[in-house]
């Protein structure tokens, strides 16, 4: 029996999304499954964005706080460190300090941090709220306006607050992350609602909600695979934005990245365990379709970069 390689091509294509102004990065744009370069085109590599915060990362575990110990008291220094010392291609500024349970910083405080960071770095900036529905609706429009024209990514718009956030992102020329909770139908519905406001679907990034390895990654994995198949095989235009995996935040709060080896000797060295947990969560979700990854530990980022290098060699 002669063997014919059962290669597959698809009608659909993921939209390429370009962010930044002075320095630009593009992700998405492929017409095939993740890393399937043997049967389709993947014009852009997945993009890894380094996460920083507006307030010192007190709730980050020691392993991931340590690389930033000299800079994390100041978002500007922190951003510069990522760009210059770590070679970050993009930076994600999470305005976690605006959360009412955190420091409850005001929209004006947030605007100042965003402006300072934008003035200090050239690489594209992703600006995320604190994931508090009402507060994000208040803070994100202001920071979107303050960063007008810089072609940032603003996030995350959710079902309960997308109107104000999407309107602001649209008016200020930004890209937008639309997040729904682990359900392909909810994800599609939110993308439709946002595009019905006049927001171009080519400027959207879908966040089907991340989960860490061991904490529901199989749900994120399968929702991502289904969204990607809808984009490619069914060529569904609302399902064609690239996808983001907000990896660091979900990984560095679970037990596996915090419990010491003294407490759980059967789990082995905490440092390697934490770094690996973040890297393996990231590569697994890339295999499911994520093109934009938000990550924390420099060593995890470099492992994932090596993996991407090998895939694109």
């Amino acid at each position: 029996m002669a063997f014919t390689p059962p290669k597959e091509s698809f009608r659909g294509r993921v939209y390429p999304v370009t962010i930044g102004t002075e320095v630009q990065e593009t992700f998405g744009g492929e017409n095939t499954l993740p890393f399937h370069r043997f049967e389709g085109e993947i014009p852009h590599r997945p993009l890894i964005s380094y996460e920083i915060q507006d307030v010192p990362p007190q709730d980050w575990p020691e392993v991931v706080r340590e690389p930033y110990s000299d800079v994390s008291d100041d978002p500007v220094k922190w951003a510069q460190f990522c760009q210059e010392s770590l070679g970050a291609k993009s930076i994600t500024l999470r305005l976690i300090g605006t959360h009412p349970d955190q420091k409850n910083l005001s929209a004006e405080d947030a605007v100042k941090v965003v402006t300072d960071v934008l003035n200090a770095v050239k690489v594209p900036l992703i600006i995320l709220g604190s994931n508090h529905i009402e507060k994000d609706a208040e803070v994100l429009p202001k920071v979107a306006e303050a960063s007008k024209g810089r072609n940032c990514v603003i996030g995350k718009a959710q079902e309960a607050n997308y109107k104000t956030i999407a309107a602001a992102a649209m008016a200020s020329g930004h890209k937008l992350i639309a997040m729904s909770e682990l359900d392909i139908n909810l994800s599609k519905q939110l993308n439709i609602l946002i595009t019905q406001m006049g927001f171009e679907k080519e400027r959207l990034i879908t966040d089907p909600m991340c989960s860490a390895l061991g904490y529901g990654i199989e749900y994120t994995y399968s929702v991502m695979e289904r969204i990607r198949l809808a984009a490619l095989a069914q060529a569904d235009p609302v399902m064609q934005p690239p996808m983001v995996a907000d990896v660091g935040m979900y990984v560095w709060k679970i037990k596996e990245t915090q419990a010491s080896e003294q407490d759980l000797p059967e789990w082995g060295s905490l440092r390697e365990r934490g770094i690996l947990w973040e890297a393996l969560t990231a590569t697994t979700l890339m295999l499911a379709g994520a093109e934009l990854l938000i990550m924390r530990h420099p060593d995890a980022v470099s492992l994932v970069n090596t993996f991407i290098d090998e895939m694109f060699a």
């Binding site: 390895l213 199989e218 596996e256 789990w267 082995g268 060295s269 365990r273």
Partner: peptide, 19 residues
């Protein structure tokens, strides 16, 4: 290594659960 086993066991368990 133990940390490596833990990560791979977990991934294998997650990917092979019944959806």
């Amino acid at each position: 290594e133990k940390w490596k086993n833990l990560a791979l066991f977990t991934l294998r368990q997650n990917i092979y659960t019944d959806p």
